[in-house]
Simulated assay, not measured.
Amino acid sequence: MGSLLAGSLAKTIGEAFNGLFLPASLVRDLPQIGEDPADPLPPTQASYPCKAIVEGYSDYFKANNLVNASDRKVLILATSIGVKPAAGDRVTISGITFTLQDVSTDPAEAVWTCRGTM
């Protein structure tokens, strides 16, 4: 069951922050099914346009080894993308690509918060 805050609140937040988030692209590897399981085909890629911003982690997170020096917080506006981001996905924003490690959301399911590694 989804959050009671999801839906109209997420839409309101999406409309309010749409201008602040930058154009981005999420890329996901999708497996291909071949005829021979012993000779798997390379994955194909699906690309999803979205709106995102990048933030650095605080000194507290870095000093306590909670994140790596190359980690950044990638925030994706949930109303701007049709899929749920997942670990292993890649997000490119302003020409920099981040590989997602951890993905969470807020109670309104308005913003995906991801730990991305450069």
Rank of each mutant, 00 (worst) to 15 (best):
I76S: 03
C114D: 02
Y48T: 05
A10R: 15
M1H: 06
Y57C: 03
L20Y: 10
V103R: 03
Y48L: 02
P31I: 10
A108T: 08
Q101Y: 11
V27G: 01
Y48Q: 04
L66A: 09
L77Y: 02
F98A: 00
T117H: 01
I81W: 11
E15N: 15
P107K: 08
F98W: 01
S3V: 12
A16F: 07
Y60K: 14
D71V: 08
T113A: 03
P42K: 14
Y57P: 00
G116C: 06
G88A: 03
G56K: 10
V54F: 00
R90I: 03
L41I: 06
N64M: 07
S94D: 12
E109H: 13
T105M: 09
V91F: 11
L100F: 01
A110L: 08
A86G: 08
A110H: 07
S25Q: 14
F17W: 10
V67R: 14
E35N: 15
V54L: 02
Y57E: 00
F21G: 15
L100S: 01
S8W: 05
P31V: 12
V103W: 02
L20Q: 02
R28S: 11
G56T: 14
V67T: 14
E15M: 14
G116W: 00
L66P: 07
D29H: 12
F98C: 01
G14L: 02
T99E: 07
I96L: 05
L100H: 00
P107H: 07
T117L: 07
A38V: 02
T92S: 13
Y57A: 00
P40L: 04
L75Y: 00
G34W: 15
S80R: 02
A69C: 07
L5P: 02
R72C: 06
I93Q: 01
L20V: 04
S8A: 13
A24W: 02
T12W: 11
P37N: 15
D59L: 08
C114V: 04
F61R: 08
I53E: 09
T92C: 07
P85F: 12
A87M: 12
G95P: 06
S70N: 10
V103D: 05
S47D: 10
I33E: 08
S25I: 11
S80N: 05
Q32T: 13
L30R: 08
T44H: 11
G7L: 13
L66K: 13
G82N: 14
A52R: 03
D106P: 13
I96C: 02
S94G: 10
M118Q: 11
L75I: 04
N64W: 04
A108Q: 04
D102F: 09
K11D: 14
A69Q: 08
G56H: 05
L22F: 09
S70M: 04
A86M: 10
A63K: 09
G34D: 14
V83S: 07
P49S: 12
P42V: 08
R115C: 07
E35C: 12
Y57L: 02
